[in-house]
Simulated assay, not measured.
Amino acid sequence: MSTIRVAVVGFGTMGKLYADILSEMEGVSLTAICSSSAESRLEAARLGALRFGSLDELIQEKIPVDAVVLALPTYLHKAYAVAAADKGLHIICEKPVALTTEDTEEMIEACRRNGVCLFVGHVLRFFPDYARMTERVSDGEIGPVITAHAKRFSLHPPSNSWFEDDTKSGGVLFDLMIHDIDYLHSLMGEAESVYAVIRKSPGVQYAAAVLRFENGTVANLEAMWGYAGPFTSSLGVTGKDGMLRADNEAYKLAVSRGAVAAHSQRNEGVAIPQGEPADDPYRLELEHFIECIRTGAEPIVTARDAGRAVATACAALESAWLGRPIKPQRLRQSTSALHVKD
């Protein structure tokens, strides 16, 4: 097995998580951590990686790496992805891929031009209960899907963080709701229209959206920063013959027919949503992307999928501003299936 050499760029919550996982993965060398934080120096030494103050420093030193993991604030994704692609590096980018469809297309085009892969961490696809839901919907277990309802509530980000600036983070729509937007696209296909509302007050941001898909399915989505309880997420999908429900508090996929079956719940209160320890979705995601780099296989989440989620989130923001349904923009056809070397 060839060793894939990886650098993690950014060392916040997700950068630390990715670095820990990569340092333990078979067939992977955590070669470098790129961050200006004092903590990153100590952690790089602990993990046996080199430490650089920036991606530019890594590139200037000509350290041999095959891929970079971009665990940076969203507004920085495009500039770093284009710079990495121009140096021939594969890219694993934290979600959302960007804040506009134009930036997304520039990132994809840079990767196509340089013959490298672009993967985006829509980790919900790798949660075992959501993966099982996808299989059961595809198998027709509940018949044609009629409606879906997704909920994702979390603590509010620190008031002094970049998340607080919607021009840098996209707000709760791009940070939380985009998880469910991407997943529902994977089940239902293209969204025909989106109608959304956003409400803000000190320490709270709430968004609700109704997505109407081209296949006729209607989905209701909710996302909230500033939730008083523990992190909460759930998704219910209803078809002609039954319902499937995934719930982070239950840690299982519940199936019911007729009357809704009750199931036990327990509060987890984790900062980063997790699945069962044996099926860590972040590890599954990274292992999948690394294997795609190694083999050229098509990933579960394509760059076009990530761009489609951005387009729908942008339409939701526009809808909230204008107070009417908006049709999501389509990415250019040239951006399809750009996940392997030419």
Rank of each mutant, 00 (worst) to 15 (best):
S2F: 08
S2W: 07
T3Y: 13
F11K: 01
A19K: 02
I21P: 02
L22D: 00
S23W: 08
G27T: 00
S35Y: 02
S37Q: 07
L42G: 12
E43N: 03
A44S: 07
F52G: 00
I59H: 13
K62N: 04
I63R: 10
A67H: 04
L70Y: 05
A71R: 02
L72G: 04
Y75V: 09
L76N: 01
D86P: 10
K87G: 04
I92K: 02
P96G: 06
E102D: 10
E102K: 11
D103N: 09
E106G: 09
A110T: 01
G115S: 10
F127M: 08
P128V: 02
I142Q: 10
P157C: 08
N160R: 06
W162Q: 09
G170W: 00
D180M: 14
Y183R: 13
H185N: 13
E190H: 04
Y195P: 00
I198G: 09
G203R: 07
Q205A: 15
Q205C: 14
Q205K: 12
A209L: 14
V210G: 03
V210N: 11
E214Y: 04
L221Q: 03
Y227G: 08
T232V: 12
T232N: 12
L244D: 00
A246W: 00
A246H: 01
L253H: 02
V255H: 09
E268Q: 10
I272P: 15
I272H: 10
P273L: 11
G275H: 03
E276K: 09
P277V: 01
A278W: 06
A278L: 12
P281K: 08
I300A: 15
R308E: 11
A315F: 11
P328G: 10
R332P: 13
D342E: 03
